[in-house]
Computed example of a mutant assay.
Amino acid sequence: MKKDIHPDYRPVVFRDTNSGEEFLTRSTMASKEKTTFEGSEYPLVKVDISSTSHPFYTGKMKYVDSAGRVEKFQKKYAKFAKKKPAGEEAQQPVAAE
């Protein structure tokens, strides 16, 4: 292997933004933020989903929308949602026998 081309592995704290759970592991991820974990300071990387909040591991379905994507979608396509007048549903054509 070539020397000095691979990033260094170092201890990094990952924080699940949904559950608030933090865990320490080794990673090459870089971060400007720092946090104290078990008495020492480490780089902090925030993640949206981890094993403490993912429905597969928790067994609970949880709605996660960290960036407002659903609201953005609904706003964008609200103009295409046409409302039918109250009596129009009853005026469906009947199929001939």
Rank of each mutant, 00 (worst) to 15 (best):
I5R: 14
P7M: 08
P7I: 00
D8P: 06
R10Y: 07
R10F: 08
P11T: 10
V12P: 00
T17W: 02
E21G: 10
F23G: 01
L24A: 01
S27N: 05
A30K: 14
A30P: 07
S31M: 00
K32G: 07
K32S: 06
E33F: 01
E33D: 08
E33V: 01
K34E: 04
T35N: 04
S40Y: 03
S40P: 03
E41H: 05
E41F: 04
Y42I: 00
Y42A: 01
V45C: 02
K46Y: 03
K46V: 07
V47I: 07
D48K: 08
I49A: 12
S50L: 04
S53V: 09
S53I: 07
H54M: 02
F56W: 08
K60L: 05
M61R: 13
K62Y: 05
K62T: 08
Y63C: 09
V64R: 13
S66Y: 13
A67P: 04
G68L: 08
G68W: 10
G68V: 08
R69H: 14
E71V: 03
K72S: 12
F73L: 11
K76P: 05
K76L: 10
K76V: 14
K76R: 15
Y77M: 04
F80S: 08
F80T: 03
A81L: 15
K82C: 09
K82V: 11
A90Y: 13
A90E: 11
Q91L: 12
A95F: 11
E97Q: 13
